[in-house]
């Protein structure tokens, strides 16, 4: 996988994807074709959004109703009882705190060490740079799940880090896709900028901090959003290494609830859906707020070979 092939994927500016395309051929599209397209998009949007709508409605409904009528909110039956039910079983604030520490730790490491590595890979010539970059690209096709047994042995057994935030964070600490995004953005900056900084006698860290970093702020945002959904949504790893309920992130706590406890509650699905809403909300809200910055060019280019 050559660097050139990879960078080809990010030639496109993020904003370009969101912009309406008004090419000549589009304007000539027959009205029937356009209506077919819009109908298709609307059906798809319905298929994507309906489960989320149903999740929210179901989470506020005191008695479950799985008939078609149940898909519409019955105002007499709305309550927060499912939320109190799930909270009494899972200690939601504690689970959110665990999720927050896990995610925050990963974000911090990714931003600090990822920016340093991305900058070095993009702008500095040093021995082994090609090797580091090859490793960065290669590990994107080695699925994390395949390393779970050796990582479990090392982290939980040898280092004794089970039920600790450090053990949770370690395998995810630096998101390689984020490093890749940082590198791509640093690469796009003009060389003159760095030459000028060197003439002025700025060291590499100072150049990075006061010249390069302010110019790649969009990359920072993209990388933070992208990195956020990793640990926040992660189930397998924290599930493996946390046994104490007070250390389990919300995704793990909710999953355990779904597979073990749910059957012992009056309205099991209501409580599950309430937990699901709490788990889904932060990622969905963040994404909607910053959706312009969150595009596939950055995501996909990391694995483009």
């Amino acid at each position: 996988m050559t660097g050139q092939a990879v960078s080809a994927g990010t030639g496109l500016e993020p904003a370009e994807v969101g912009r309406p395309i008004s090419g000549g051929s589009m304007r000539r599209t027959k009205p029937i074709g356009r209506w077919a397209g819009i109908t298709l998009l609307l059906i798809a949007a319905l298929a994507f959004l309906f489960p989320f709508y149903y999740m929210v409605v179901g989470s506020f409904q005191k008695t479950p109703d799985t008939t078609i009528a149940g898909a519409f909110p019955r105002f007499g039956d709305l309550s927060l009882s499912n939320y109190t039910a799930i909270n009494s079983r899972l200690d939601i604030p504690q689970a959110l705190l665990s999720s927050g520490i896990f995610t925050g730790g990963v974000l911090l490491c990714t931003v600090v060490f990822g920016v340093l590595a991305g900058y070095a890979l993009a702008r500095l010539h040093f021995r082994g740079r090609g090797l580091v970059f090859s490793a960065l690209v290669l590990i994107q096709v080695v699925p994390f799940q395949l390393l779970m047994i050796p990582l479990y042995v090392l982290i939980a057994r040898d280092y004794g880090l089970s039920d600790s935030y450090l053990g949770m964070i370690l395998p995810f600490a630096i998101n390689s896709t984020a490093v890749f995004i940082f590198r791509q953005y640093f690469l796009q900056l003009p060389q003159e900028l760095f030459d000028a900084a060197r003439i002025d006698g700025a060291g590499e860290l100072r150049t990075l901090w006061s010249i390069a970093l302010p110019l790649v702020r969009p990359a920072l945002l993209t990388a933070v959003l992208l990195t956020f959904i990793g640990p926040w949504n992660e189930f397998l790893w924290p599930f493996l290494i946390t046994k104490q309920p007070d250390k389990q992130p919300l995704a793990v706590a909710l999953a355990n609830y779904i597979s073990n406890v749910a059957s012992s509650v009056a309205n099991p699905y209501g409580a599950i859906l309430a937990g699901a809403v709490i788990l889904a909300a932060p990622a969905v809200v963040l994404f909607i707020l910053f959706q312009r910055h969150f595009v596939s060019t950055d995501l996909g280019s990391g694995v483009k070979g």
Binding site: A44, F48, P51, M55, T66, I229, N233, F235, A251, G275
Partner: peptide
């Protein structure tokens, strides 16, 4: 449409599994 199509991708599997079970 972009948001609508992307929302399932950014949501935790555990959360959407809950709805699919329902």
């Amino acid at each position: 449409f972009r948001v609508a199509f992307y929302v399932p991708y950014v949501t935790a599997s555990v959360a959407v599994v809950g709805v699919w079970l329902f």
